[in-house]
Design a protein around this nucleic acid. Sequence first.
DNA 1: ATGAAAGCGCTAACAC
DNA 2: GTGTTAGCGCTTTCAT
Lengths: 347, 347
Amino acid sequence: MKSVSSSQQSKPTLKDVAEAAGVSIMTVSNALHNKPGVKAETRKKVLAVARRMNYSSNPSAKMLRSGRSDIIEVIVGSFDNPFYSRLASALSDEIERNGREALLRETHYDRRGEENALSEPFSLFCDGVIIVTPLLSSEKIKQIALHKPVVLHEMPSDDNVFDTVNLANEDGAADAIRHLHAKGCRNIAVIGSSHLGPEDMLLSLNNPGTLRYRGCFRAFSELGLTMSQDTAFDCGWDAHSGREAAERMLASDIAFDGAFCLTDSVALGVLQTLRRHNIRVPEDFKVIGFDGISMGADVSPALTTIEPDYRETARALVTDLLSRIDGSTAAPRKTIVGYTITERESA
Amino acid sequence: MKSVSSSQQSKPTLKDVAEAAGVSIMTVSNALHNKPGVKAETRKKVLAVARRMNYSSNPSAKMLRSGRSDIIEVIVGSFDNPFYSRLASALSDEIERNGREALLRETHYDRRGEENALSEPFSLFCDGVIIVTPLLSSEKIKQIALHKPVVLHEMPSDDNVFDTVNLANEDGAADAIRHLHAKGCRNIAVIGSSHLGPEDMLLSLNNPGTLRYRGCFRAFSELGLTMSQDTAFDCGWDAHSGREAAERMLASDIAFDGAFCLTDSVALGVLQTLRRHNIRVPEDFKVIGFDGISMGADVSPALTTIEPDYRETARALVTDLLSRIDGSTAAPRKTIVGYTITERESA
DNA sequence: ATGAAAGCGCTAACAC
DNA sequence: GTGTTAGCGCTTTCAT
């Protein structure tokens, strides 16, 4: 037993409240839950006592007995990432709007490895989980899915087992190229990683990076332009990679006048390199990103970007999950969410 | 009962594993937990069976019985805020390093109000909670603290009841001013809110905004400069406020050559306004922020900032909380974490 | 309208 | 080394 600590009185239970109110434990439970079959007067008394005693129900007991927690878990890769943090916020909102609680967890890159395969790698008391990180192997995902419903964000739809919602990677990228062209760019660079996303989907043709590249190809050929090894600069997905890739771009023979960056973070890095080379944006060079991170509005120059509809993303994810929790056995739903071209200063 | 859903087999329990392995339930439990007193051979067999059956323990039952969950809750104001998201990430790390699980929740501005005072506003199954948001009334905090240990980040130390860790607001701000001065600035503006922080600490002399202003005063007088109504520009704590305040600054009679922004977000807004007015940073005007948000390294120009030690912050918060969970009744500990002046391009 | 009993899955304490 | 018993706080079911 834990020793009685400073300020914490041991939590009152239903039984304590029942005794204090002079009724049975079930009457208290029913009163607290607004269940019918409790006299108004009794309910009032019970509520008063419960409040006075600072009663609150023990969620473990409730979950154990009822088998549900009304808690939805969201697993993200890193909180300190502008894309995930915006999505996390939207999900948290949407989950609460549906009367559940949102619990977020950050998954580091399998840091703990398989040291103890039997310890639960994830909290198992929630009713379902929304996975928005690429840092989880599909094997692990399947293991989680053994016990509870799972919905996925930005996963390749190669295996048709989970509800999935994806960004409009291909169309969005194509529109980014068209936007640059409409703004007068004729030598457009594409900067970013073709293998954006989960490790074990590197080979998939449906990973976000590949899809964005594909969208670029389509737009380029529509516009009568060409996209080649010389106009695409492969790099990681963060600002640091963007800085380096921009240096390579600047060192090339081609006089680029604009760049589509596969993520906003890459775009920020590109913007830094351009500034260091005294290249004016948007006058001499235009930049458009992809992701619509909140901070894009606050940087200088403010970033023009393909902004996915976060609200819609969250809504689709939560709707799908709740219907699975309700027992739906329908075929996996594949959703592609819309986006807008948010035009700011950089293009 | 929930109807059997598509892919989810009902979860195996200790009992199931025990039967399958032909041993008692306790032997399974002990084997799984590496407790002594289980023959190596038996343990091996049990582990094999458990793994084959995909057994994982039911956390609700475990918590209910043992009274602890090894879960630590972190309540932040908004995930989509660069300061909180970096701190959230550091806390998540530190909590896992201590063998616990981190669960994060975002608290919106008391949106739900008091509609149902008896429903638990926060998940109550965790062992303790770390509160890093200013959006929680002290009343609500006290209510949470009734049942479990609570530690606070950036709260005024007026009431001496909780362990608290704060930024070095006053010293950091003073150093920001000194840095600007050392870089040659002679007309320094201070931009930010004096009531940065929780609503109900507006009147406190220890709120973060007031402390930062106080640090400025100190440095100004040390340097033989003056700080007045005319050199301090009050505004909110976000980039939008920063943009507006910078316009006011630029419209003033004083020819400012540098600004200390009370937060990095404000600094970003100021940087935007300066760029729109074709004022070069750092050549014509220098900017230093406060917070050390990750993105400060990725914007143009890269932001010079007072960067608190996030790792140390997380460590102090987690250490304090764990010792309370262990039953410590020592006097509340007040920690002020260190910082570094991270010099980049803007100053 | 209210109460009693059973038991969710687990672990602490104690037998064998 | 291994098994048995009791009970954490709650809700479901059924009795009154």
